[in-house]
Design a protein around this nucleic acid. Structure first.
Lengths: 220, 220
DNA sequence: ACCTGAACACCGTTCAAGT
DNA sequence: ACCTGAACACCGTTCAAGT
């Protein structure tokens, strides 16, 4: 584990959540157990319950820790740049913590950082002249796109060699002529040198920002 | 459980996955264990291992079962209607199986139905004249939006009473003036009679389809 | 070929006891 | 106030044995 050997600082909720995040990063969500967390903190499993109610609260907590890391630009930045920068930052953060995005779809009580982040997004749009309903449209659209892209990226292999490996495993498992269009896209596009699925993010984001700008200009 | 009492049909992979889906629908993903699944099928836990390799394969399997339910329109339908219908269908399916969308972000080996679905989407776009790179753009954009919207909906309460309950719990937990823009949007818009977050889906979808149509017309 | 009983090494969590 | 040892009711999975 990353910091198993250390003088025993007193346990706090923050230290518990930081350690939980580190474990999930290193071993995935399945590796994060009350027992592995206690081991990481040089403590008995039961000590954790003095700082968090249960494992659910830890999962809520680590999602909020991840939201802490999403950069939100200064209040006075024009809305297009602000939305672009925070979308790019969110995508980068979820790329660093790929276990977190699936968790977002299961947590029903958002934490402080999550709510602050959402408030800042809506605030920026309102100051830019978006009506409340138009800000709601923009918010739902941009967040859906960003989360969904992160969700797709979470299952993607990081490097090119693994891409080929996965593709081969797929071809082994199914008759290759079952998916002619998928095969065409893979061979002619995705497997070509220079292709990076991540580049698709900017394309879609600009298309959405263009659309929102046009709508906002004519009032929704 | 939904069908615990029944004559014991021979176990098959299909029956195992159908029962697993039913359990997840009824009790959530946490309620789906090898043991609860065996109980549902009137069988000993170990019998399951003759039809699936392990629990991971069951999770892969139920995601594919869910993809089976996403309706894909006839091949010759114009691309805008085809994309709209399958996005609406996907959203409805994930609303019925809210546990499934988070799982999408953790499964790295897609099943037959998933791949067939993706192939049909790309095929429709190609027949409509989309270039391979343009089809890749459209595919990434529409899927990201649809999955991301489903991810947000998965954490939302279903009925109005629960919305108010959740909002009150949030206000109890944090000083209410910490999130002025969120509060404004909640009181002036989201909590108003007639508001339904689900309606945001169509707004964003049409904006994206408009953008794609314009881009496709001028070749990317 | 298909199913099972007993067992193993894990889980999250509670309780009563220690300092 | 904070931490712990022992225990409980669960997990997924293996193995050797049954039909």
């Amino acid at each position: 584990m990353t910091q198993a050997v250390q003088e025993r600082a007193p346990l706090t909720r923050e230290r518990v959540l930081a350690a939980a995040t580190a474990i999930a990063d290193a071993e995935g969500l399945a590796g994060l157990t009350m027992r592995s967390l206690a081991r990481e903190l040089c403590v008995q499993p039961m000590s954790l319950y003095h700082h968090v109610a249960n494992k659910e609260e830890i999962l809520d907590g680590v999602v909020d820790v991840v939201f802490t890391q999403i950069h939100f630009p200064a209040d006075d930045l024009d809305w297009r740049r602000a939305m672009r920068e925070r979308a790019d930052s969110a995508r980068a953060v979820f790329r660093r913590h790929p276990w977190a995005i699936g968790l977002v779809g299961t947590r029903t009580s958002p934490g402080l950082a999550t709510l602050q982040h959402h408030d800042a997004v809506i605030g920026n749009l309102r100051r830019a002249g978006f009506s409340v309903p138009m800000a709601a449209h923009a918010f739902a659209l941009l967040d859906s796109y960003t989360y969904g892209f992160a969700l797709q990226e979470a299952t993607l292999p990081f490097d090119r060699d693994t891409v080929a490996e996965v593709a081969n495993a797929m071809i082994d498992q199914f008759p290759s002529d079952l998916f002619p269009h998928l095969a065409e896209m893979a061979t002619e596009h995705v497997m070509q040198p220079g292709y990076d699925f991540g580049d698709e993010f900017g394309y879609g984001l600009e298309l959405i920002l263009d659309g929102l700008e046009a709508k906002a200009a004519r009032g929704g």
